[in-house]
Amino acid sequence: MPEKTIDHGRLEIKCFHIDDVDFGEKNEVDTHGKLRVCKDMLQKLAEEKSEFIDHIDLQVIQPDDHDRFTNTIMDFIPISTKVLGAIGTGVTYTLTGVYFMLTGVDTEGIQAHEFGSSEGNLQEQVIFDRPSTPKTGDVIISFDVTMKAGMSEERRGCYAAHEVCDKFIQEFRNQMKHFNANDCTEKHVYHDVERPGRKKIVIIRQVAGQGAMYDMYLFPDEPSGAIGGKSIIDMGNMPVIVTPNEYRDGILRSMQ
């Protein structure tokens, strides 16, 4: 007899694989594996946050091009967007094969990090195929922010870097929202299942909560996004509970 389970919710994540990433005349992404990035909007993004940001650079790093310098890696970010429902429910579209890499330094050359900087040669400073890192064959879009002097060591400076990167990614998210669902390359359906009679367990994630590059954002507007998020520091570092589907749908944005 099948075991009795109770279904508390359903989340669908549809993946669209990207294998052709390059510079183009504008930011665009399609369902045939093509993504183009354009530097045009970077100056405006930097000017909007001119109190914190000096300038922004963008590079497309192909899988065979890891022998190159990188500033310290603040984050690897998946490109995902909600198409239906709130985070943890409904439908999410995400891209595979390409990820954003946010890096940060200030005009004095001080890297944006907490305990130890990963600046150096990319192929030596990253172990690929780990949970925190892309796969060896993935394309990396390097979003390299140079902050104003001293800002790489302040929460507001680091947040500004995350915010402008998020605004840039939103350009792709807005296009992805109109993708035809049937064009997806993978589909994953997750049910939040209760198993009565089984041992009840919780996962406890202890996360950073002390300051610049030692922070965690929750509840952003978009999956793995920064904008709209609440800092665990501002919430007094008090515990909050999320469902498994909220967690796997990108309800956390790492700010460490």
Partner: peptide
């Protein structure tokens, strides 16, 4: 399927 996962608690690390 041997365990019933109820949720994930996120807790910070204050100073």
């Amino acid at each position: 399927t041997d365990v019933d996962l109820m949720g994930i608690i996120i807790v910070g690390t204050p100073d």
